[in-house]
Amino acid sequence: MDTITHTLFGLGIYKAINKENMSKREKQTLLFTAIGASQIPDIDVISQLWDTSGQYQMWHRGITHSLFLVPVWALLFFILNFFIFRLKSWRFFWIALLAVFIHDTSDVFNAWGTGYLEPFSNARLTFGTIPIIDFVIWFIFLLAFILSKKGSYKESSIYRISWIMIALHIIIQSIQGYALYKQYEPRYEQLALSASFLPWNYSVIGKDENTVDIIQDSLLTQKHLMYKLQSSDNSNLKKLFKQNPKAQTLYKWSPFVVVVDNEERLGIYDPRFYRKGQSFLFEFIEKTQK
């Protein structure tokens, strides 16, 4: 998910906890823990500063998003809370544990995926049933904020209901996405799913031999073939990988790629992010390079 959504998750955790009997310092600790732990897995973005071998694509959402690192991050916040706020309470450890778990798990549901099982598996776990920016989640939290300001209901109760609504939204989206995936699975050798910003709509990306279809579909509408792409799979990619290490990383990272080999360029791109004739995950070299 995007940074704003992860921040909203942190605020949602903070608001969902009854703070009537908490001191000011405890509330500050709770806010720091909920938001900080909701963001901490994305600390891997700093790896761009020393990436000289084109590995950032694998490092981002890699080991820092591992399920096995969740208690480590939670323990870090337990220690930070002691040194910063002079509070030693295991309650905040469990809150941090929940916040990190929500971050890592929510990222699995979008097309980007995570190294959820690293270091035991380098595979990127991705369902593709929730968009990276999910406006439904934003709307639910906005509605909770508005209702909490009216004063008719307890704030913590409103936000707990909002979490139930978000969980139901993700479940409904994922069930529909899975149903579509199973419909298309017999037709293609390789298949991936990418949720649209419009709820209950998906891009189905299927590859059969050298052809990649990108289909807009849902369980409630007629399918629409958006793009039919040709991949030059027989091309030798050694020169590309040698001159552009990011391309080799992308090749390992993506479920499958489209190979471009024409008079101008040799490259690969991830078709899940193909829009208006271009994928923003496209690594290539110019044929004029020596």
Rank of each mutant, 00 (worst) to 15 (best):
D2I: 12
T5F: 11
L8H: 08
I13M: 09
Y14Q: 10
Y14E: 11
K19L: 08
K19Y: 12
Q28K: 14
L31A: 09
I35F: 07
G36H: 07
Q39I: 10
D42M: 11
D44R: 10
D44C: 05
I46P: 10
D51P: 00
D51C: 04
Y56M: 10
M58T: 02
M58N: 13
H60Y: 13
P71M: 07
L75I: 03
F77V: 00
F78W: 13
F78V: 00
F82D: 11
F83R: 02
R86L: 10
K88C: 05
W90Q: 04
W94P: 00
W94N: 01
A99S: 14
D104Q: 10
D107F: 03
D107T: 08
G113K: 01
Y116I: 00
L117I: 08
F120M: 08
I133M: 15
I137Q: 14
L142C: 11
A144G: 06
S148T: 03
K149A: 08
K150P: 05
Y159P: 12
M165W: 12
I175R: 06
I175K: 05
L180K: 09
Q183N: 15
R187N: 13
E189N: 11
L191D: 02
A192P: 01
L193Q: 09
A195H: 13
F197R: 12
W200E: 10
D208E: 14
N210L: 05
N210V: 03
D213K: 08
I214Y: 02
Q216S: 14
S218T: 10
S218Y: 06
L219D: 04
Q222D: 15
Q222S: 15
K223T: 01
K223G: 06
Q248I: 03
S254N: 02
P255T: 03
E263M: 06
I268T: 05
Y274D: 08
R275S: 09
K276L: 08
Q278E: 14
F280A: 06
